[in-house]
């Protein structure tokens, strides 16, 4: 695993709740190697989403260090963090985080609005990503008119459109039925086989079981659960 593509060193996240300190994460250390498929499990409110947000540069740790490809992001500016989110990570969230009244194509193109991809090439790249997740025929459909499974495929297409090294998924199957969950997990496995590093936050044991490695989190503390071959 060497130094890992993602490394957390003594990361804590503190919130002030009702005037007293509440630690969502306590001294978390984690290494994620390139090409890994890692499940982060835990009960609701255990801090797993907070951990994913800190890894994905959506939130900042109160203390400790988060290193992406060996570089600490603690001192990064807002613009630099945005660039990391845009180019290094792809996000798949439980609520999909899609722009509802826009088409699937617009949503998949959206990450390219914030980098140097030429506008003329955006559609072609987005359609290729949609093709990859099997939803190219739905490109002109508005998100509001799509099923949960279709929305999550759009979200995955959006996550891979900039060809990021890491895909961060926060309860990606939380709103989906069993069959669709399996389809989406197949897709994640397939992307992992292509070399993408995948981190999935889930409380679903079946989803976690399909990942090569699982860590669990409880009361903000991280525990190594198991390391599959």
């Amino acid at each position: 695993m060497e130094n890992g593509i993602i490394r957390l060193e003594g990361v804590s996240k503190k919130y002030i709740v009702g005037g007293s300190d509440f630690y969502a994460l306590k001294d978390v250390n984690l290494k994620v190697g390139k090409g890994e498929m890692l499940a982060i499990t835990g009960t609701s409110g255990s801090g797993k989403s907070t951990l994913l947000h800190i890894i994905g540069c959506l939130d900042k740790a109160t203390s400790g260090d988060c290193l992406i490809e060996g570089r600490s992001v603690g001192g990064y500016s807002d613009s630099e963090l945005a660039r990391v989110r845009n180019m290094f990570f792809g996000f798949v969230l439980q609520d999909f985080a899609l722009i509802d009244h826009r088409t699937a194509l617009y949503n998949v193109e959206a990450p390219m609005f914030f980098n140097r991809t030429p506008a003329a090439r955006m559609k072609k790249i987005a359609l290729a990503a949609m093709e990859r997740v099997g939803i190219a025929d739905q490109s002109s459909k508005e998100i509001v008119n799509m099923s949960g499974g279709q929305k999550q495929r759009v979200a995955i297409a959006r996550a891979i459109v900039n060809d990021p090294a890491v895909i961060l998924a926060d309860e990606p199957t939380g709103n989906l039925d069993e069959k669709t969950t399996n389809d989406i997990m197949d897709l994640f496995c397939s992307l992992n086989n292509e070399g993408k590093t995948i981190l999935i936050v889930t409380h679903d044991r079946n989803v976690a079981s399909r990942c090569k490695r699982t860590v669990s989190i409880s009361d903000g503390m991280l525990y190594e659960s198991r390391d599959k071959e």
Partner: peptide, 15 residues
Amino acid sequence: NEQAKYMIIGCSKKK
């Protein structure tokens, strides 16, 4: 809400 979604996928607060 929409801006938050843009920020998740790479838009900075300044942008």
